[in-house]
Simulated scan of single mutants.
Amino acid sequence: MSGKEFNIGSARSGTFFISSRSTKLSKQKSTIGSFLGPAAAEGKNEEPDERHGQWLRRRRLDGALNRVPRNFYPQIWKILGKCKGINIEGKVIPHSLTQEMTAGELKFALEVETVLNTIPQPEYRQLVVEALMVLSLVREYHNTDYLGDIVSAQDIVHVANNIFLSDQKQQDGDATTCCAREKREPGVGGGLACGGAAYICQHFYDSAPSGSYGTMSYMIRAATATLNCFPQDGELDCAVS
């Protein structure tokens, strides 16, 4: 198991439960699929060997071509309305842009692209894009007026990767051959043994976005762990239709 499920699954009775720091986030009907596009369903009938590397290749291609989901830039504009800025690898997209430009303005899209284009690894760029779409879900469905001061998109990606590796250890998944090993050996140039870019496991890059072990599920769990707008104790029910 390496997280390559291709269906947006439900834990029980049609409800998708995600827990992090004693916080439960339940989703009645996932809207994640609207961000993934038809490609999320590709590979359902393929053999496991044929699927190997599929999502890694797709993320590299999408990142190299600067592809983003539909309505991506207006969603970023709305996120900025609830924080002071979005940090992406040391570059900040400031809240002040919402006062200077409209959500649909081309100049605003170019400002966002300028920051995203500072990421040299295309597959890592795509995971950052996924993290930003998770932030848009939080903004839309979580009843809060403020997400935090500077929201770090890369922190969500790296925390999601750590949660993924923890699950891989428990399930004896594919990542136990590299990043989820008890004693990890450094790769070439001090990087990861699997060759994953930006210190993210290559098996995480090669996981489908949707599904119980999909990257978006881990991103949501990471968001609940990193954003200050979520309570650290107790339960939170968030219905997404």
Score class of each variant (00 low, 15 high):
residue 116 L to K: 02
residue 122 P to R: 03
residue 93 I to M: 07
residue 42 E to S: 14
residue 95 H to D: 07
residue 87 N to K: 06
residue 117 N to G: 06
residue 103 A to M: 06
residue 44 K to R: 15
residue 119 I to A: 01
residue 141 Y to N: 11
residue 103 A to Y: 04
residue 131 A to N: 01
residue 139 R to N: 14
residue 133 M to S: 13
residue 49 D to W: 13
residue 115 V to C: 09
residue 62 D to H: 12
residue 111 E to N: 10
residue 44 K to T: 14
residue 125 R to A: 00
residue 57 R to F: 11
residue 77 W to Y: 15
residue 66 N to C: 10
residue 116 L to D: 03
residue 107 K to H: 12
residue 51 R to N: 14
residue 28 Q to R: 11
residue 98 T to Y: 07
residue 106 L to F: 09
residue 83 C to P: 13
residue 100 E to I: 13
residue 89 E to R: 07
residue 37 G to C: 04
residue 40 A to I: 13
residue 130 E to N: 00
residue 134 V to R: 01
residue 63 G to D: 05
residue 52 H to R: 14
residue 138 V to E: 05
residue 55 W to K: 07
residue 108 F to Q: 03
residue 134 V to L: 03
residue 30 S to C: 12
residue 138 V to S: 08
residue 53 G to K: 12
residue 121 Q to I: 03
residue 82 K to R: 15
residue 127 L to I: 02
residue 35 F to I: 01
residue 79 I to H: 07
residue 76 I to R: 00
residue 61 L to V: 09
residue 35 F to P: 04
residue 40 A to P: 06
residue 76 I to Q: 02
residue 44 K to S: 12
residue 66 N to W: 09
residue 88 I to N: 02
residue 43 G to N: 08
residue 37 G to W: 01
residue 88 I to Y: 01
residue 135 L to G: 05
residue 109 A to I: 03
residue 62 D to M: 13
residue 51 R to K: 15
residue 85 G to I: 08
residue 24 K to F: 02
residue 27 K to T: 08
residue 138 V to F: 09
residue 29 K to R: 12
residue 70 R to C: 09
residue 110 L to R: 15
residue 133 M to W: 04
residue 42 E to V: 12
residue 56 L to G: 11
residue 63 G to Y: 05
residue 30 S to E: 04
residue 73 Y to G: 10
residue 103 A to H: 04
residue 134 V to I: 11
residue 125 R to D: 00
residue 101 M to A: 11
residue 76 I to A: 03
residue 121 Q to N: 02
residue 59 R to H: 10
residue 79 I to P: 07
residue 116 L to G: 01
